[in-house]
Design a protein around this nucleic acid. Sequence first.
RNA 1: GCCCCGGUAGCUCAGCCGGAUAGAGCAAUCGCCUCCUAAGCGAUAGGUCGCAGGUUCGAAUCCUGCCCGGGGCACCA
Length: 586
Amino acid sequence: MKAALEELLTASLQTLAGDVLPDGATTEDINLERTRDPRHGDFATNAAMLLARHARMNPRQLAEHIIARLPESSLVARVDIAGPGFINFFLAPAAYREQLTRALAAGEQWGHSDIGAGQRVQVEFVSANPTGPLHVGHGRGAAYGASVANILAATGHAVHREYYVNDAGRQMDILAASVWLRYLEHCEELIDFPANGYRGSYIRDIAEQLKATHGERFYRPADEVMQGLPDDEPRGGDKERHIDALIARSRELLGEEDFRIILDAALEAILADIRDDLEEFGVSYDEWFSERQLVESDAVAQTLARLEDKGLVYEQDGARWFRATDFGDDKDRVVVRDNGVATYFASDIAYHLNKLERGYQRLIDIWGADHHGYVPRVRAGLRALEMPEASLDVLLVQFAILWRGEEKIQMSTRSGDFVTLRELRHEVGNDAARFFYVMRSNEQHLDFDLELAKSRTNENPVYYIQYAHARIQSVFDQLKARGGDFDPERGLASLSRLDEDHEMDLMVEISRYPEVLEQAARNHAPHTLAHYLRDLAGALHTYYNAHTFLVDDEALRDARLCLCLATRHVLRSGLDLLGVSAPDDM
RNA sequence: GCCCCGGUAGCUCAGCCGGAUAGAGCAAUCGCCUCCUAAGCGAUAGGUCGCAGGUUCGAAUCCUGCCCGGGGCACCA
């Protein structure tokens, strides 16, 4: 609908070019928008005000010319000039009826578009380290990323959803060591658990499982394990040095093979848990990309070699540093530590390079806001390798703060004392969780109130929208119960009977849906879709209360049911994109 | 100190690629179920858009400075 009006406007401006307007008059800032105030019509454009200077006439005068050259269209009932030079379009009611007809024909595809046709987009999100269960912060990234990906797919982009599994590197070694120590505890050995180890109870579970499968195979006396290690932090030592030494000792005592068995057992258990969790949350991936494979395929080494060849790496204090400052970063960054181990940053450059080599036009990384300092260095890496860094969008998700009514829930990842995503889902349900997570802009801190999310009251926006959907279903059920029969053909033929204000309002909302999806896709902003669905549900509830749908006049009744049906399609489609269910009854 | 996000109604937030009289939900007050689900609807009230400059025909929106809140500045991930 909007596109059709834009065509009219463009056509008019083209006939004016070289006549009233100079040939090269720029038109990029011209916009055509829905009006806020119905007295300004349905759509308005600022074209005359922006082009007035080029035309060397005042905006209202130019507006006259633009209107005079607008092609004839059945969509438009009237065009006015208002205020400082706005051109206001008043649409014909028939235009909205036509949109409704199209919406019904499209069903749940209504609103989908092909604006992203030909674009391959890779969306990487969550990518939490497989060192423990997902917590509520990851949940927001999951809900946001999944919704963004869904919306991009609905607007015609070829979307590839990917989870980057950090299954290589030091954190994995720490994980394996943590599990092993708990295993030894399970064998009745007394161990001072390292300050830097993973302390969560899930580590004990994995250790117990290991004992059940492998028995005493990995048993070593505690003295042998701990003897001669540098002091840990509680004893005044350095916790990093302590854990590194502990890892080395573990490898030595167990041998590479057994160490790897423990590491893999832990990795597989945790990864399986993460997959299940996300799957239950309605979040699925096309690919789980393994960092370990990236390392083992030599891609990291090759990437580093490319940087070395360009002379962008130097040695200092025993480490290898990438000249990130040459490419816009604040500091140079270590790519190989003094112990010879490549940093995660080195893998990350290789990973992004790999993504681009796979042929995506656009990469979207969704990260927690606490990683924002990481953005310049990844961009620096891409720029150094002469890759088009503009093709990378990093979308940051701010923290979610949990509340139970008035009480703020404190969390600390270090101590393993955090609320998991699974606990949250079980408490408030998947629908409320998905909706609450994306209800606010990703750039806003999110206050997530568990009490509110659980409440079955009018304070809870999720139920408000779902209820609108269930109500429509209930109307159709009611019709059937009364022995009536909905005839869509008759309804479509009678759309002109829909002349009540509430009906027009609802038709306007339905006609907006394609624009809402387009905007949500362009801005990576699922919250705009959430707000729209609330508005749409509101228009339905208002209409429902003002008029009876199941009237004796069958033509009018079926026309109204057509309107309800289209509304239901949009509600279902929109909720689906947000990963929220659309129940038939509540 | 430097970087990122935020500061809009009592509360939580939209609006921010400049547009017309700044919106919504909740909370508050007053109404609406013999009628398709009251998890609903209607009405009323509520604002120096953090502060100060600047750009513009026009600024909540863009620029600069400052104030307040949150986060980040590792040979951690």
